[in-house]
């Protein structure tokens, strides 16, 4: 029992660690429409794995280095010749394909390809946990420190500039944070599902959040719940853990949207009865109609 308890506990802690960092970062990925950018960065991690194995380096280092290189390349090159989504699509799939090909050249090394693609959370070691929580703390601290500036740059770069915030610098910080997260989450959900851990909890959080801070908190909560539910499901039905976590997150997203639609419907009923008086008090000189619900 203690053996079972140990690795399940480590898996749960690993899932929680990734959710802590993925929550706030995922909000920015959603707000700034960086989903494809996240994919490209994550796929580059596979090349980082090859690099690490070939040079006998810790996998985390190679992965973080490649993720940073990819993120910077894409950030610099986007919008030059092709549309951004084309550029990102090329980069993302090229990184994946080149990574798979390069990995096949590594003769003599037994590589757990499935583990890198989809994660291997039940094999998390104490050392992995240290890396995960170190990375999660780094990402969370970085985002907390820059929170106000990151938000302003996200709302509008020009408005941020007028307030003395350099939107380019904030984007660079997000890019670096994303690379760290990819390195940290590799063991838990693998390169193919990293983006899901970013987007799905944040999207679920959107249904209820009224401020950016609420969305951060709710995204972390959804991420933690998905991790625990996914690990439980994996244990119960003997399914792969990484994909199970993502499935749990998607189910939570669906639930959140259904519940959100219900509460909004009820709120709309209440406001429509009190609506006209409130609306006319707000403005008399505007011809356009408010789009409020």
């Amino acid at each position: 029992m203690s053996l079972l308890g140990d690795f399940v506990l480590r898996a749960c802690l690993a899932g929680i660690g990734v959710a802590l960092a993925a929550g706030p970062l995922g909000c920015f990925v959603v707000w700034r429409r960086m989903a494809y950018f996240g994919d490209a960065t994550a796929h580059a991690a596979l090349l980082g794995v090859t690099l690490s194995l070939a040079l006998n380096l810790p996998v985390v280092l190679g992965v973080a280095a490649m993720a940073v290189a990819m993120a910077l390349t894409v950030a610099l090159a986007s919008g030059r010749t092709y549309a951004v989504d084309t550029m990102l699509g090329v980069a993302s799939h090229a990184a994946l394909a080149v990574g798979l090909v390069a990995l096949s050249f590594l003769s003599g090394v037994r590589v757990d390809l499935m583990g890198y693609l989809f994660g291997d959370i039940l094999a998390v070691t104490a050392a992995d946990l240290a890396v995960i929580f170190g990375g999660a703390a780094l990402v969370s601290a970085l985002i907390a420190w820059r929170w106000r500036r990151l938000l302003m740059a996200t709302i509008n770069p020009d408005l941020a500039a007028a307030s003395g915030v350099d939107a380019g610098r904030e984007r660079l910080i997000l890019t670096l944070a994303l690379a760290v997260l990819v390195a940290v989450a590799l063991k838990v959900v693998g390169v193919l599902l990293v983006t899901a851990m970013l987007i799905v909890p944040a999207a679920a959080a959107r249904a209820f959040a009224r401020t950016p801070e609420e969305m951060w908190g709710l995204a972390v909560a959804v991420g933690v719940a998905s991790s625990l539910a996914g690990i439980w499901g994996s244990w119960t039905w003997d399914t792969p853990a990484g994909p199970s976590i993502v499935v749990a997150a998607v189910l939570l997203l669906a639930l959140a949207n259904a519940a959100g639609a219900l509460t909004r419907g009820r709120r709309a009923d209440q406001t429509s009865s009190a609506g006209p008086a409130g609306a006319s008090a707000v403005s008399s000189s505007e011809s356009e109609s408010s789009s409020s619900r």
């Binding site: 959603v30 707000w31 509008n156 999207a203 959107r206 959040a209 401020t211 950016p212």
Partner: peptide, 13 residues
């Protein structure tokens, strides 16, 4: 600014 499009995914009172 002239026109500022706040992304609808951003909850902002």
């Amino acid at each position: 600014p002239q026109r500022l499009a706040i992304d609808h995914t951003m909850p902002l009172s």
